[in-house]
Design a binder for these strands. Sequence first.
DNA 1: CTTCCAGCATAAGCACTTCTTGGGTCATAC
DNA 2: GTATGACCCAAGAAGTGCTTATGCTGGAAG
Lengths: 303, 303
Amino acid sequence: MIEARHLRVLRAVARTGSFSAAARELGCTQPAVSQQMKALEQSAGTPLLVRTGREMRLTQAGEALVRHAAGILAGLSAAEDEVAAIAGLRAGRVRLVSFPSGSSTLVPTALARMRAAHPGVRVSLDEAEPPRSIELLRNGECEIALAFRYPEVPGADPSAGAEWDDLVVRPVLSDRLTGLVPDGHRLARAGAARFTDLAGDPWIAGCPRCRTHLVEVCERAGFTPRIDFATDDYPAVIGLVGAGLGVAALPELTLASVRPKGATAVRLEPAVHREIVALTLPDLAHVPAVGAMLDQLADAAGR
Amino acid sequence: MIEARHLRVLRAVARTGSFSAAARELGCTQPAVSQQMKALEQSAGTPLLVRTGREMRLTQAGEALVRHAAGILAGLSAAEDEVAAIAGLRAGRVRLVSFPSGSSTLVPTALARMRAAHPGVRVSLDEAEPPRSIELLRNGECEIALAFRYPEVPGADPSAGAEWDDLVVRPVLSDRLTGLVPDGHRLARAGAARFTDLAGDPWIAGCPRCRTHLVEVCERAGFTPRIDFATDDYPAVIGLVGAGLGVAALPELTLASVRPKGATAVRLEPAVHREIVALTLPDLAHVPAVGAMLDQLADAAGR
DNA sequence: CTTCCAGCATAAGCACTTCTTGGGTCATAC
DNA sequence: GTATGACCCAAGAAGTGCTTATGCTGGAAG
């Protein structure tokens, strides 16, 4: 079985016309070259070189091998270059899947920084909510999934985060829940409120997991919220609150890029956080482009 | 440095989707595959595979490598095929240089047999006298030189064969010198003659070395031949003898393919032989096609 | 829910390959 | 004649690759 190493040596010998010169070129000793060529001739089954006193000539088989070697070694070199480019963050692609409200500020910042730091790496972005984004990750359809989780509420079903224990979980941001009340609400002026203060209000809930978590938190606070509406669409939640239809508890991040109309943000006590994390597969975490993108996500949040 | 072995393993893994299956395909154990891939990832500087529970997927770098591997391994395989064809006498080329009178019978026979035995090997033929043909051999412009030599005449200059002692000398034929006299010559009827019987005759000599040797033999027999003509062209020698201009001593081979007109061949005593040999470089003797052609030359003579 | 099975990782031991070192021979150049 | 450069050979050392044995994990079946 011919190995690339053999061809490299053969090519050097053919080019320099001498074992010694080839050895110098290859950075080894002359006997090493001699032995390599012997081994290659052995596996070729025919002499490849003719030692005729002063000069070294190729046999026909040697010429054939050198001729092929050019293409083979060029291909090998191209392969190494391409891999090195990917490993060196000069090329590559990262497919990122984010949950909708993460895309608005965190992701654009991270993408911009990534592009500045590693212009060769292309990052694509899709949106999907956690259960779906994890599936995409496991199916190999993306490298990073941006998701969020709520800290476990004592006594509640701990199934939410259980699916991630075989993934790399990179904390990105801890996103405190902010209360949102209509402008005319009795607590709008106070600027702060406890959950129990809103026990009697109608609630506008967010996505299913957010809703579940809201219920758990409220029940821990001693009441069961009356949820009149629930929607994945955070702008819609803001709109509903602005229309005076209820109150809501929204992650700060969802309010960072919009100015609520007809609604006022109030500080909620006790503090409840939504933890935003970037997820990837253990092996993928070692891929340079993926690691760099994870870093950028963390950095973008730390701003 | 990426080696072909790595790519073979990677390709098998990519195709089968499993280390174990790849190991079976490659005829080795699973840890061997595991280690090879680890080494390859090490030298690539980035993961190439993602182990995700049940299935094995390629990273982008892995895909790039597999993509290149196809071409590289194909090229390697083509190179091996071509070399194997040359080594297996299914292809190749042998350049034979012969002295003129050797080409008439010996060489055609050998060429015909060679073609029958190994149709894929092309044999080219050029003509050159020994000093020149040896030069061609040493310069790499041919693989086999067909030449002749006379056994050393005691007391003569031994320089003739001295240049061959670093070559492979393959005896092909021992070609006895035959006397050629005009039809009306006093010895034409006898059918045999000693050199001394022709001491008074004018001689027609052959090529320079033949002429030198003739003089040596005659002087050893006790006389110095009177050489009226000397020519490389054996048919011309025959013509001159036929015209009654002298006698000659010709190798049998030169008479094998022609019928002398106006001249008669007589057995010469004592027997003097011209030895026809095939010469090649030591390394070239191990090239299958060269070896086969040497065999055919020897066989053609042994007929 | 437990058990079984398939597949990968790891460690240790062994064999092979490959490299280097230190001879030696031959040819060429001064 | 000597010196130099190139190759070959042999022996020893280093490194690499393969195998066996073992543990671990995830998925499938009972």
